[in-house]
Design a protein around this nucleic acid. Structure first.
Lengths: 359, 359
DNA sequence: CTGAAAGCGCTTACAG
DNA sequence: CTGAAAGCGCTTACAG
C-alpha cells in the first residue's frame, strides 16, 4: 500500500534511490549500516524509506547475499509440553535477533521420510535446529548434510562431548537422578520407572539417571515400563503397576505420563501418596493443579530453546559474539503426590467404587 | 555434498543443463512440469537431476516467480492446547502441499508491536494465517495490508459472513450452548462461567453461547468470571466460586481453566460432581485422565488448522481447485465431573484437611 | 564518500 | 520442442 492507498508493488531500493536522489547502491549501504555514507545523504535516504514504507525484500537479500536469517526447527512434535516450550524459547530468541522461524514436523521416523524432511528444511536456507529427543529427531540430526549449520537439542550425552559440539541439553540425567533420590529418601525400597519413548536403542538419559540412583542406593532395579508421550501410555503402565505391591514409588518420564499413572492408580483404589508415591518430569503447567498436585522435576525448556538459537546464531554470524545462553539446572519440585512409604504395603488393592475408565 | 563427498555449492540448473547437454531453460521446464519437452530430453534431465542431487533453490524460485510456497502463522501463543493443535493442523496440510511453514508470535497486543510482527511475517513472502482468538490476534488480522493473502482463524462470527470471507472457525458458540444445556439438564438452577480472555471488547462467542442457553432456559445469568488461558486463572476463579453456594455448575472456557477450578473446589472441600459440577472446553488430552475425569466439549482444532491452510492454498493458487476442508462439529463429552444437582446445596463448605495451595 | 557493473539462481515471455 | 535475453531485488567487489 503506497501513500495513495492503492495496492501496488512494494517500494524497491530503486524507488527509494529515486526519491532520495541517490543511486540504489547508496540505499543498500544505508540499510546495511555501512559506515561510509555522508550523514546528510543517509538522512535523505532514511526519509525516503520512511515515506515510501520501504522494507528490504528478504528473498532478494537472501539470494544476493547468500545468508537467510531463517532458522528452521525440525521436530517430531509441536504440542507436547517439552517440545512446545523449546519451540517457544527458540522463537523468542529468534524474534529478538530478527530471524524468521520455520518448522518442519517429522511425522515418521522412517529413513526416507526423515531425509525428505531434512531436505525440505534445508531448502528454506538459513540454519537448522533439530529436536533430537526421539528416534525421528536423532535420525534427522544425523541426516543433516555436512556444511549446513545445525544445532541439536539432545538428551544428556553419555560422555561429555568436546567444547565444539553443536548441541545443547538440559541435564535430564541429573534430573532423573534427583527425582529418584527424592523418592528413595522417603523410605521406598525402590522406584519403578515409566519411560517416555527412547530416542535410540540405547538407554535414554532419564533412564540412566534413574538407574544410577538406584544402584547408588543398593536398591532393586525393576524393568522400566515403556510409555508413550501422553497420558494414555501412563494409564496403561499404571494399571500394571497397580497390581504390583512392590511398586510403592513411581517415577514417570513426563508429567502427562504421570497423570495417566495416577488415574490408573486411582481406579485401582491405590491412594496417592499414602500407598503409592508418583513423580513426574518437566513441571508442566498442569502439575501444580492436579489432585494430588504432582511432584516433578522442573526443566528449563524455554531456556534450552533460547540456548539452541544462541548457539546457531553464533555459527551463522561468526562476527557476532553471541553470549552463551544459560540453561537453568533441573529443580525438584516436591508436591503432594510423593510421601513417606507406609509399612506394610497393602497386598490386596481395593476396587475404587466410582472407578470409570476414561473415554 | 557432491558425488566426491566434498562440501561445495549445490548444483544449479546450469549444472544440470551441462550434465544433460541441454540449455538451462529446458531444465526449468522439466522441474516445472511444463508439457512441451520431448520425453527423451526430459529423461536425460531427470537423470542429471538425480545424479547431481539437484534441488531447486527456493529463494531464487521465489524471487523470479514472485510466489513463495510459504505460509506464516501469526499467533499470540504456541503452547496452549487449542493454539498448538491449530498449528499442528496447518503444518500437516502445508507439508502435504509442499509449503514451508513459518511462525511469528505476537508477544504483545500493543498496536506498534502487532504491526511490526505483521510486517515481519509479510517479509517471508507467501501467505498468512492469523489465529485471532485474542486481542493481539484480532489486531494482527486487522493490520494485514490489503493485497496480502491471509486467512483468519476466528471465533464464531456474531452474524453469518458472506461466502467469500477468508475466515475459518469452529462453532464454539454452539459448543458453549451445548455444554451449558448439558449442565442445566442435570438440574442445576444456572451455570456459572469462567471465561478465557476475550478477543475483543465485545462478548466472545463462547460467552454468547453460554448466555443464550441460560436465557432459553429462563435461568439466572451470573456475571462471567474473567480467567486467563492457564490453570492459575481457573484456580483464582474457583476460589471465589467455592464460596458461592449458588454455584453448583461451572463451565470453563478451556480445560486448563477447569483444572484450576477443580483444584480450588477440592481445596475448599467442595465435592465434584456431588456438590459442584464442572465442565471444560476443548477436550485436551488430559481431560479424560483427570480425577474426576472432565466433562468437556471437543473441538476439532487440527481440522480447523487444515481448513485454514486449505482456504489459503486456494487463494494462493487460483488454478488449484482445493476441496473445502471439513471441520468436525463440536461434540459434548460427558465424564465424571458433571452430575445431577443435589438438593439442598450445602451452605457451609468444609475445609478439606489435606489442602495445600499449589506452588 | 558515491556510482556503474556483474551476479545470486531461477522464471517468463519471445524467438525460432 | 528448444534456446537466447531480460529481469526478479538485492549485494558485492571494483572504480573513481
Amino acid at each position: 500500500m503506497n501513500v495513495t492507498g492503492h495496492t501496488t508493488r512494494p517500494a524497491s531500493i530503486r524507488d527509494v534511490a529515486d526519491a532520495a536522489g541517490v543511486s540504489y547502491q547508496t540505499v543498500s549501504r544505508v540499510i546495511n549500516g555501512h559506515p561510509s555514507v555522508r550523514p546528510a545523504t543517509r538522512d535523505r535516504v532514511l526519509t525516503a524509506i520512511e515515506e515510501l514504507g520501504f522494507r528490504r525484500n528478504a528473498t532478494a537479500h537472501a539470494l544476493a547475499s547468500g545468508r537467510s536469517r531463517i532458522v528452521t526447527v525440525l521436530t517430531a512434535n509441536t504440542t507436547h509440553y517439552g517440545y512446545a516450550s523449546i519451540l517457544q524459547g527458540i522463537e523468542e530468541a529468534a524474534r529478538a535477533a530478527s530471524y524468521a522461524v520455520g518448522i518442519g514436523v517429522l511425522e515418521s521416523a522412517g529413513e526416507a521420510a526423515v531425509k525428505a524432511e531434512v531436505q525440505r528444511a534445508s531448502d528454506a536456507g538459513g540454519g537448522l535446529i533439530v529436536i533430537a529427543y526421539d528416534r525421528a529427531g536423532v535420525r534427522a540430526l544425523a541426516a543433516v548434510p555436512a556444511g549446513l549449520p545445525v544445532v541439536g537439542v539432545v538428551e544428556t550425552p553419555a560422555s561429555p562431548p568436546g567444547g565444539e559440539s553443536p548441541w545443547v541439553w538440559a541435564d535430564d540425567r541429573a534430573a532423573a537422578h534427583e527425582a529418584t533420590r527424592h523418592l528413595l529418601s522417603l523410605g521406598h525400597d525402590t522406584v519403578h520407572y515409566v519411560a517416555i519413548p527412547s530416542s535410540t536403542r540405547r538407554t535414554s538419559a532419564r533412564t540412566a539417571g534413574w538407574r544410577q540412583a538406584l544402584r547408588e542406593a543398593g536398591a532393586a532395579e525393576p524393568r522400566p515400563l515403556q510409555g508413550s508421550w501422553g497420558p494414555a501410555g501412563g494409564y496403561a503402565a499404571g494399571r500394571r503397576l497397580a497390581r504390583d505391591p512392590a511398586a510403592t514409588a513411581i517415577l514417570c518420564g513426563n508429567d502427562d505420563l504421570a497423570l495417566g499413572v495416577m488415574r490408573a492408580l486411582h481406579e485401582a483404589g491405590r491412594a496417592i501418596p499414602d500407598e503409592v508415591s508418583v513423580a513426574g518430569f518437566d513441571d508442566s503447567p498442569l502439575a501444580a493443579y492436579l489432585t494430588p498436585s504432582l511432584t516433578t522435576v522442573r526443566l528449563d525448556f524455554t531456556g534450552l530453546g533460547r540456548a539452541a538459537f544462541g548457539l546457531l546464531h553464533g555459527v551463522l554470524e561468526e562476527s557476532a559474539t553471541v553470549a552463551p545462553h544459560p540453561v537453568s539446572a533441573p529443580e525438584l519440585v516436591a508436591r503432594e503426590s510423593s510421601g513417606p512409604r507406609q509399612h506394610p504395603p497393602r497386598h490386596t488393592p481395593r476396587q475404587h467404587p466410582g472407578a470409570v475408565p476414561p473415554t
